[in-house]
Amino acid sequence: MEKTLKKEKLNSLITGLKDKGYKTIAPKKDNNLITLCEIQEADEIHFDHVQTNNSIKEYFLPKTEKILSYTIEKTKVSIEEPEGFAVKSVVFGSRPCDAASLPIMDKVFNWDCTDKFWIERREAITIVTIACDKCDSYCFCTSVCLAPDAKQGSDVLLTKISDDEYLVETETEKGEGLIKELETVFSEPPSGTPDRQVATVEKKFEIDKVKPWLDENFVHKIWAEFSTKCIGCGACTFVCPTCHCFDIVDECTMSKGDRVKNWDGCQFKMFTLHTSGHNPRSTQDQRWRQRIMHKFKYYVEKFDNILCVGCGRCSRVCPADMNISEMLEIISTDEGQPEPVSKE
């Protein structure tokens, strides 16, 4: 289904959503950050940015979440499961790369164990994406088979067609349902071919050359050379829309407690530390290699998807200016493709 949305109708859209019982999550400016967060009014929405600082993942895999609570009385343990965690919402104005991360992660959360927290939230939340009309030098969606107007993961895709108008395209039944619910807000699609304002994102590397190189170069001097500056802070994994590792801990007193699921990441040295004291990934280059391998080799082998949507957040946030697309450029242009040049 195709429609148009006039900017002047944004107010009615957001109020409409509220009236229909949706919580609205949209980009908002907060000091130096642009954050995807709950909003009440259309005025709060920030449009003129490349990318939000936080990714969409926290609405599906929150930074911290209770998975059960328990009480212990003598020998009796009672368990209470959380309810109501999946709140009917719309994420409005996320980027196509963020939206594309969701179907990629669906695979892992529906794999050996179905993660009800993820799945129920996926059902409850509708994604309305706005195609990017600008980008920065960290963006590389086009190098990982996506685009600034990619449709993957979006229920509705908005594309700017003039200063005050968006083209509205529904991609799923859920998206279609949403538009129908708020029909009066939208106008008929433009006649003729609309002038889609979409950014041009330069292609940085040949993705086809990455995996064959990784297959051969688990041992390579580049890992250490590239990552000496990495301080292992893990910020890259926390801001990444496709990093999904978590840790489960109990926060408790003697008689009761919560079992909590928290973000974790492979860049921390504690991540792989065994009780014995042995650490199979004892140095940062091994951890950096793990990040690249997981995203561009292991996940591909297991789920037939690259675990990266090219949003560039990891590189923007990195305190040491580690740049993932630079690493992939090096890999994809390494002379010995797919044979290694040197294994010094």
Partner: peptide, 12 residues
């Protein structure tokens, strides 16, 4: 409230 517990502050 904004803290995501990445510990970048102490890593750096």
């Amino acid at each position: 409230e904004k803290c995501i517990k990445c510990y970048a502050c102490s890593s750096i």
